[in-house]
Amino acid sequence: MSEVPADRFYLSSHEWAQEGDDGVVTIGITEFAASELGELVYIELPGEGEDVHFEQQFGEIESVKAVSALNSPLSGQVIESNASLLDSQEPITDSPFEEGWMLKIKPADDSWKDQLMTPADYESQLNNS
């Protein structure tokens, strides 16, 4: 059973979002998504200052000859991108909820959590898939 941390929110396409004390939201993909993707070889992420939009593609990741879209769990502006992932994608697989974070985002509004799944809802989705 994949880990589903209780301190963040989820998108049905297996991205997570965690709010920090400063209101900045960190996003990444879940352990389930990372395990499904298999061995990762490339990733492309947006740079600082770029806008991302709820449920819209913010990047791409390649594994097993397949390029998969990464979807943003909220709208806002990128204030930091995890550039170390461009050189090595292993943290995404080994530590998807911590070292494998992808973007830090300044939310466009305060209601971003309303559109996302709770940990219980996401866990239920995993159990039913």
Partner: peptide, 25 residues
């Protein structure tokens, strides 16, 4: 790759086809 289509020719495995994929929502 595990998904390669292959053929055995004179005891050697020859790749006869390859696949590439893209996923969107």
């Amino acid at each position: 790759s595990p998904s390669d289509l292959v053929l055995e020719v004179d005891g050697e495995t020859v790749k006869a086809g390859g696949l590439a994929l893209a996923f969107r929502p």
